[in-house]
Amino acid sequence: MATLKDRIEEVRKAFEEAAPQAGDAKSVEELRTAFLGRKRGRIMLLFEELKSAPAEEKREAGRLVNELKVAVVDRLQALENGALMAVRPAREIDLTLPGRQRYVGRPHPLTLFQEEIERIFLSMGFAIEEGPEIETDYYNFEALNFPPHHPARDKWDTLFIKGDLLLRTHTSPVQVRVMERTKPPIRIICPGRVFRRETPDPTHLPMFLQVEGLVVDQGVTFANLKGTLEHFLRALFGEKVKVRFRPSYFPFTEPSAEVDIECLVCSGRDPDCRVCGGTGWKEILGSGMVDPQVLKNVNIDPEKYSGWAFGLGVDRTAMFAFGIPEMRYFYENDLRFLRQFGAK
């Protein structure tokens, strides 16, 4: 006589033969009754038989019956799901089709980049200030310690309107206006459009965006300028980026510093690098301690207060950060270019 173990094997085989035939919900239900039916189900009968099995067989056979039951239950569930799917006419829904999206417009890359810069300074307690783009000679030059007819003005080649009106060549006039109407502590950034009389080429345009910043308070030092700008550049270009401050000249700061970061393209390893010219460094911003004459011009006592300021071209920095070879791309407004940056 076959052992209980053999009979369990027999039932398993029978189920496996019958299962593939069950194509619709009805036959799956019949299969369930035949094997799991409470009274006559073949697996249920095995459980009955188990009760009277000899002790030495009971343990092993019990495990096998239980395993079989779990397998049958799972298989029946799967068959049932399949049967339900089969009810729907094939291919009415192709789930592999692309999802339906609502198109959301993309911000201009310069706006995106400028907002990134603003966010970093806002987190350091700076406020955002703006001012007119058509300025006077006084705010654009004289208050900033550019004497009339000084060759220093040549670097800020100017588009003139009439009388003493001109298109601002930097957003520094906003700094002057804020210092005129506010008592220190002052901690601002001034983003905006600026204009220069430039013949367009890959890295020069007659209009571009700038962000300048200014801090005026008691006890502000060049060390603060360094620390804050280093923090800013690391926040913008990554924690590990190397930053270098070197002496320079601007009429409105004393001492003045250009700030370079290491070339992200070649890290100083390519003597013919198109981005850094092989120096390994890329000039990113100009900065310095606010010239005492500038403070005097706005009635802030330079003996009591000191300050630092910086200025950065948004376009050129964005070119560097994104590896964009020509500045004019930003103003051609080719949507195939602009739309790439929404995902940035």
Binding site: M124, R187, V215, D217, V220, T221, F222, A223, N224, L225, K226, G227, T228, E230, H231, R244, F245, R246, P247, E254, P255, S256, A257, M289, D291, P292, Q293, P302, W308
Partner: peptide, 24 residues
């Protein structure tokens, strides 16, 4: 002015030797 002389000192002392500190 005095600030002009301070710049001369800073230039030759070395900008890289001035310790960075965030503005409080």
């Amino acid at each position: 002015r005095e600030a002009d002389l301070v710049e001369e000192v800073a230039r030759f002392y070395g900008y890289d030797r001035i310790p960075p500190r965030v503005t409080p």
